[in-house]
Amino acid sequence: MQIRMNNVCKTIKGATLLADISLTLNSGKIYGFVGDNGAGKTVLFKILLGLMRKTSGSITIDGVELTDLLQNAGFIIERPEYIPYYSAVKNLAVIAAYHMKTDSARIREVLEMFGLDPDDKKAVGKYSLGMKQKLALSMAFMENPEILILDEPLNALDEGTVNNARKHILEAREQGKLILIASHYKEDIQSLCDIVYRMKGGRIVGNIE
């Protein structure tokens, strides 16, 4: 799979959020995006997911213009959304009901993968920040998507879980998935990414391979 972005711009009410973003992203690689708050990382991810419309430019997936929502993508964007009065299993079951391609065994598996107890009946609203982040990772990985778009995926996690999550992200790369990560933590980026793009003021101002 290849995603190509050509001169993608996004402006809202005269403010430029993204300017002339041109990238080629290939399967089997992890791309990192770093930059200060407001650099445009999250907007870039939302445009790639199709949640936000670009103002100009083009995005193609394997040569086909992206005009709708991105298919087959798992994501963590901004504050993850949960149903706070449901358990973790029930939250994933609600999400799984959309595509009907995830069974309860996979839900249990993915929760265990990120260190959550699938038999825990506790409402997600009572979870700590770290547990919520584990659930967000479980949601992103649940349907085994081809593309993973992860905005600050390792926030609030303890060291053991961070190492475990890194392992699963690297495994996903080995399985040929295309992965995009934004993080403020140098260590996350250095340990995971094949190419790192630095963003500033909505532009890509440099990259490190």
């Binding site: 199709g50 929502l69 959304e81 949960y82 149903i83 609600v94 999400i95």
Partner: peptide, 18 residues
Amino acid sequence: DEYIDKQAIMLSASRKKA
């Protein structure tokens, strides 16, 4: 529904369905 909107939109697979 502030809790599941973003996931629901993405999982709808298309803007029309959402």
